[in-house]
Every structure is written in C-alpha cells, then in structure tokens.
C-alpha cells in the first residue's frame, strides 16, 4: 500500500467532534432520566435502567476517546494531478481522486464549525463524494480554489 498522505487536518477538529458527541450524549442522558423516573414512580424493572445507564456511560467514553483517535488517522495531500485522502479508525482507507475526474468542490460550514473558525471541503466526482472534515477557513477556501483551478484541465467525457 502507498505511504500515508502528509498533511493533517486542524487539531481543533477533536473539540468539534467531542462537542458533536456531547450533543448526542445529551439525548441518551435524557432518555435514561425518563427511564429512572418510571423505575421509581411506576416500579419498572431495574434492569432497563441499568442497561440504559451502561449504554450511556459507554457512549460518554467513546465521545471523549474517539475524536482524538479519528483525528490522528485523518490525513490528506494535494498533488497537481490528484488528491490523496486517508481516513478511518480501525479500518484505514486511502483514496486517490484524480483532478481530471473532479466535477465540483464545495466548502461547508455549520454553526459549530463556524465557532471554531473551521470549514469542511467536499470534492465530488461523477460517481463519488469525498470529504475533508475540519480545515481552517482560509485553508479550506484556498484548497477549494486551488482544486477548481487544477480540475479545469481538459476533461475527457464523464
């Protein structure tokens, strides 16, 4: 297999992903809370509360641990003729996207990404879409322009 790409995404991606995880976690905490109420007020079986608490705790641990792990794996590199992306956690995937195949590039930014002054880049070919999740705003915009210039080379049909 080829060597990994060189560049990493912004380190604040970890914070963003943790925040996402926490929002997700809130939902589980609320559900567990409701179950706790029913357990005491309506004599539900204890096991429902115990299993739901275990699930919540596991999700809390994962929400804290996974982002750092994920960040470490995320890499990309831009060549003149192609984009090289690596991502994954247990299974690592390395993808080559030739510039001639790129149909359009988008930058995207949700409220959380905006707060951290980050943006994600989306590269689309006729058959696939690839994402580089957390780049600094300037970097994302620069990459977007750069790719759209490089992709402008003569396209063979489709």
């Amino acid at each position: 297999m080829r060597e990994a790409p060189e560049k990493r995404i912004e380190q604040s991606a970890i914070k963003v992903w943790r925040l996402h995880g926490l929002i997700y976690l809130c939902f589980f905490i609320v559900v567990t809370g409701i179950i706790a109420y029913f357990t005491y007020a309506h004599n539900w079986s204890k096991w429902i509360l115990i299993s739901s608490s275990i699930v919540t705790i596991i999700i809390a641990i994962l929400a804290i641990a996974i982002p750092a792990f994920r960040w470490r794996r995320w890499r990309y590199q831009l060549f003149e003729q192609e984009i090289y992306i690596q991502h994954g956690m247990l299974i690592i995937e390395r993808t080559l996207v030739p510039m001639v195949r790129v149909q359009h590039v988008d930058t995207k930014q949700g409220p959380i990404l905006k707060k951290f002054r980050l943006a994600s880049l989306e590269i689309s070919t006729a058959a696939t879409t690839h994402q580089i999740p957390a780049l600094s705003e300037e970097e994302a915009e620069q990459l977007r322009d750069q790719i759209s210039i490089l992709a402008r080379v003569e396209q063979d049909d489709v």
Binding site: I91, E93, R101
Partner: peptide, 9 residues
C-alpha cells in the same frame, strides 16, 4: 475510474 480506494484493518 472516478476514484480508487484501498483499505485494510
């Protein structure tokens, strides 16, 4: 071929 990936655990 629009894109190519290799992946492994």
């Amino acid at each position: 071929i629009q894109a190519m990936s290799a992946y492994a655990g």
